[in-house]
């Protein structure tokens, strides 16, 4: 039976503002299927976003939705989750939103290991503002601000999340919707901060400047660069410049060495804070 997306969408807000063939739609679908997999009540979910094409997604979802300021979604989401720890808080972010202007909130949300799921749609560019280069535009590629070729090194958002303390980290591309759905569902199930990076095509901005201005060629570019994480482990850094490493980045075994598992989280933040409340109240009685 076909999946009923209508159940989760604000149909009166469709058509959406994304370009035909945009990768964000695939991510949104994977997200809604994951909500269904979890059996969550729509009233119990808050979808939070910053600013950008990606960040328009919550507006289409029939839940509690919050479209905040550029880069700051995780801070708003942190307030919501701490005030209502039993509810589900999901953040939707672009690569610029999450790791440029919002980079500080990103690493600290990872560090706190607060039970929020962050889905980053990485289209390697600033889509909404006209295709300027972002922290994930590969070296040598063109953007409206790097017509001579980008020289700014990139972040690997997954490795960044892992180093900063996130406790579930995975990446899939929009060419593999099922894989995305699996990872987002695992992120939802996971107790702690989870980061799922969805590599997506922005043929309109990134693609147009790099000889792949239609959805098919932009997705082919993604396909040609995808490297599963097990294969990537044995590859040289230089070989991985503009590659897309997919798979799960976190091993859940705390007994690994510090170097293999730096910043392994010790607790989930809202649970830890609940223990602080109990401690404070017990001391107050004396």
């Amino acid at each position: 039976m076909a999946f009923e997306y209508e159940k989760y969408l604000r149909m009166d807000k469709i058509p959406h503002l994304w370009c035909p063939g945009c990768g964000i739609g695939v991510v949104l679908k994977a997200m809604l299927r994951s909500v269904e997999n979890m059996g969550w009540d729509k009233n119990d979910i808050a979808f939070v976003s910053g600013i950008g094409c990606t960040s328009r997604a919550p507006g289409y979802i029939d839940c509690n939705t919050l479209h905040t300021t550029h880069g700051r979604a995780l801070s708003f989401a942190t307030g919501i989750k701490l005030a209502q720890p039993a509810k589900h808080v999901v953040v939707f972010s672009g690569d610029g939103d999450a790791t440029a202007i919002g980079g500080n909130h990103f690493i600290h949300a990872c560090r706190r290991n607060i039970d929020i799921t962050l889905v980053v749609v990485n289209n390697n560019t600033y889509g909404m503002t006209g295709g300027q280069h972002s922290p994930t535009t590969p070296i040598g590629y063109k953007a409206s601000t790097t017509i001579y070729g980008n020289i700014d090194p990139t972040f690997d958002i997954c490795l960044l999340a892992k180093a900063a303390g996130a406790s579930y980290v995975a990446r899939a591309t929009v060419n593999k919707g099922k894989m995305l759905e699996k990872y987002i569902t695992k992120g939802f199930e996971h107790k702690g901060f989870s980061v799922i990076v969805a590599t997506a095509n922005c043929h309109t901005q990134f693609g147009r400047k790099n000889k792949m201005s239609d959805p098919i060629s932009a997705r082919k570019w993604i396909e040609s660069r995808e490297i599963p994480i097990d294969k990537a482990r044995n590859m040289k850094a230089l070989e991985l410049n503009d590659k897309i490493i997919t798979g799960e980045f976190i091993s859940e075994e705390p007994e690994q060495t510090y170097w293999e598992n730096y910043n392994h989280p010790i607790h989930e933040y809202t649970e830890a804070y609940q223990r602080i409340r109990e401690k404070a109240q017990a001391q107050d009685k004396h």
Binding site: L66, L74, A77, T78, G79, I80, L82, N104, H105, H108
Partner: peptide
Amino acid sequence: PKVNGTYIQMEDEIGAMGSIIGAS
């Protein structure tokens, strides 16, 4: 924490402001 409330020290004032709006 004594009154079942929440205190959080955010990573900067921008985040602090965001957090209180979310909680509100």
